[in-house]
Design a protein around this nucleic acid. Sequence first.
DNA 1: GCGCTCGTTCACACCATCTTCACCGCGCGT
DNA 2: ACGCGCGGTGAAGATGGTGTGAACGAGCGC
Lengths: 107, 107
Amino acid sequence: MQTSHGELVRIGDLEIRPQEGLVLAAGRALVLSVREFDLLVALATHAGRVVSREELYRQAWGGTLRRGDRSCDVYIHKLRTKLERALPQHRFIHTHVGFGYRLDPGP
Amino acid sequence: MQTSHGELVRIGDLEIRPQEGLVLAAGRALVLSVREFDLLVALATHAGRVVSREELYRQAWGGTLRRGDRSCDVYIHKLRTKLERALPQHRFIHTHVGFGYRLDPGP
DNA sequence: GCGCTCGTTCACACCATCTTCACCGCGCGT
DNA sequence: ACGCGCGGTGAAGATGGTGTGAACGAGCGC
C-alpha cells in the first residue's frame, strides 16, 4: 500500500504525517514499522468511526483479508502497546467486538 | 442479518450509523454487541411505531421466532440498560404488552 | 556467517457474547 | 384468593471472538 497520501492528521496528542511516515506522540517521535504505520493511518483516516478488519487490511496491507488471518489483530496489539507506552493517559484504539476497531483519544 | 445497510438515523440524542455498527449517545460512542446493535436498528427503522417480537426477531436474528424463545426480551433488557446508562433523562424503549416494543425518545 | 528487525503464523488464555433457564412481579379473569 | 399469561431480570453454561506471547523464516547490513 502507498503510505505517502494524505495530509497531516491530529488525533488528541497524536500527530501523524503520512507524507513523512512520521508519528509524534505529544511531540516525541514514535518508532513504528511500515505495517504499524500503515495500520495507524488506516485507523486515523476513519478516526472516531468503527473500521472493519477487512477495511483495515485493504488499506494497510492491500488485497483481501483471508478468513483466519490474524495479522490485523496482532498489529493492533503492537500499535496499542507503543501508543500506550508513549501516551499512557490515553486509550486510542477501541475494540468493537464483531465490528472492528475505532481510533479515538479517550481520557 | 445484514448490519451494513441503511443511512444514518437520529432518534433524539441517539445517532445510529448502521454502516459502521456504531451508536453515538449524545456524541459519545456506545458499546453494543452485534445482537444489541441489530435489535436497536430494527427498532429504529420503525421508530415511533410498535414492533412485534416476531418482526424484531426476523430483522435482528433472521428466521422465525420460536414460541418460548425469550432472546428478544433479554436483549431488549440489555439495550434498555445501556441506553439508560448513557442517557438517563430519556426512556427510549416502551413496552406494549401483548403487542411488542416501541422506540421513542421520551422526556 | 552473524545479528538484527520485521512480518506472519500458531497456540493458548482470556473475555465478551449468546442462549437458555429459573424465578419474580404484575395485571387480568374467574 | 387463585391460577394464568406476560414480561422483567439475574445467572449459568456454551460458544466464539479477541488478546498475547512466542516461534519461524525472510531480508538486510555488517
